[in-house]
């Protein structure tokens, strides 16, 4: 009877130790993930802001060179049209 009780006790303790160990590992991983997420979020924010600035710069340049930009777009369309005709 005593032996059975002791076996159950050790089994339960084993389960507790294993699950705690797993828990610690996952929590550590979660902490790591959170820090990576924070850094990627920061990078994302930085690159988003820089892209917004680039877009603003483009809008200003497009406004300044509106006619030329339209001309370039038209030539690109013509190029695509001829390429399609060539590949048909």
């Amino acid at each position: 009877m005593k032996k059975v009780a002791l076996s159950i006790l050790f089994l339960l303790l084993g389960i507790i130790i294993y699950s705690s160990y797993k828990l610690i590992i996952i929590e550590k991983e979660n902490i790591k993930l959170r820090s990576v997420i924070n850094s990627v979020t920061k990078d994302n924010k930085t690159i988003k802001n820089s892209n917004i600035n680039y877009q603003k710069q483009i809008n200003i340049l497009k406004d300044e060179k509106k006619d030329k930009w339209e001309e370039l777009e038209e030539w690109k369309k013509t190029k695509i049209e001829i390429e399609e005709a060539l590949s048909s």
């Binding site: 892209n51 680039y54 877009q55 710069q57 483009i58 340049l61 497009k62 060179k65 930009w69 370039l72």
Partner: peptide
């Protein structure tokens, strides 16, 4: 966007 700026 950088290409577009270069293009412009």
């Amino acid at each position: 966007l950088k290409n577009n700026i270069d293009e412009l």
